[in-house]
Design a protein around this nucleic acid. Sequence first.
RNA 1: GGUCUCUUGGCCGAGGGGCUAGGCAGCGGUCUGCAAAACCGUGUACAGCGGUUCGACUCCGCUAGAGACCUCCA
Length: 490
Amino acid sequence: MEHPLHFYNTLTRKKERFIPLNPPFAGLYVCGPTVYGDPHLGHARPAIAFDLLFRYLKHLEYKVRYVRNITDVGHLENDADQGEDKIAKKARLEQLEPMEVVQYYTDRYHVCMDLLNVEKPSIEPRASGHIIEQQQMIEQILKNGFAYEVNGSVYFDVEKYNKKYNYGKLSGRVLDDLMTNTRELDGQDEKRFPYDFALWKKANSEHIMRWPSHWSEGFPGWHLECSVMSTKYLGKKFDIHGGGMDLLFPHHECEIAQSVAAQGEDAVRYWMHNNMITINGQKMGKSLGNFITLQELFTGAHKILTQAYSPMTIRFFILQAQYRSTLDFSNDALQASEKGMQRFFAAVKSMNNLVPKETSTVDIKSLRNNCYEALNDDLNSPVVIAHLFDAVKMINSVSAGSESISKNDLDELKRLFRDFFFDILGMKEENASASDNEILKDVVNLMLNLRMEAKAKKDFVTSDKIRDELTKLGFEIRDKKDGFDWTLKS
RNA sequence: GGUCUCUUGGCCGAGGGGCUAGGCAGCGGUCUGCAAAACCGUGUACAGCGGUUCGACUCCGCUAGAGACCUCCA
């Protein structure tokens, strides 16, 4: 590859060059949502971060299979083996079938992802659709001696596993430390060791989601689905596994243990973790109750918001931080993103109206490589955006007449925006429907032409009135040397 | 308590031993009938204290503060 892509591998704790196992193919698995609640801002981060990766890998002409799961079963409410299934609990609260809840929130998630212009993954498997495969993996782990059965439940034998392999290599944990640090947990009596985790859990009588198995009627443990579905669709060894940093331990650590226990070697080659979105410096999360749903952002219906923010504003906001940094959320920060993003779209519009000259006084040659360099350095989207802002400045200068651009350079500039701003960063014009409305366009142009006539007659009362009224309606009017320009703001 | 991470100007956020990040906001100017937009100019920012170094905001140590994981979490 001409542009070597590097990213930070959590497993090795350093940036590594990405060399896929079977080029030109690349396999990517990302932990998707547990569908028992409305998608919130936190869900947007990994979705967008790995959407960026997906898009960039495709841009680099890899044939990517992107698998992002839907967790619709198996995550327990409280302590590993005492709680009830989250989805079952919600179902009982709302008097709905569990699968009805799953469907409802899956649909909500999809709607939000579409609005955020997050591309659909190649495969979106559900845990509930892979019960048999999960049982097969449990059998394999049992056969290899790294699990034991107690009263119809099957647990992973962490201590035994750690004698042969290294439990904790991803999160940097040492099992001995974990042992000395053991806390009192209820209902651990079935386990040999507190850090053992369930592979299969016998369902109690009230538990609604249950499947038959050799061991009991029950349900699979929480970490199993990802091990199973990733390798099922990407192979026993595959390139990239992504997810939020909060899943690093125990979820991803257990995934590694399961895969290694089942097949004798790691499944994942590069582990990538996105950081959290914070609010007032604190992680936004369900348990803290300080999360803000995407719906609330899109409608402005939240007390810390002064207005609604469009999905593209959210996307731009998230891309303005590198995915491994925490991103502090606030109304002010969103407002800054919205303004900046609007400058982009205004510049793109005026780029398409630029008239090329014989020669260029702007230097656009380095822009493309600068953007590649930023992306190749662990997907540094904020730096890409900074370079694109340089391009915005050039466009505006040419538009203002203080600089000129050649036909070739203008074409390259257009390609630059198409490739990086639209295709890779995944930005898109939002109120296209409004400004694409021909009749609306004609009416606004009519009004503004009347205004021009008034101005020509120095009838500024009339001309200002037209401008002010249109502004009130949400239009932005910009006078030009010989004419005008306008946009409908969202 | 254990493990780990972070602390950049009013806000968000890159970066990296000596070279302007960028955006938003602010201030001054140009343009304009006035605006808006745009353009030009404008900020002695790197938590504190030591150390290493010719030179540190960037490396090391300590102190303070914040956070993450250790329990479901994106």
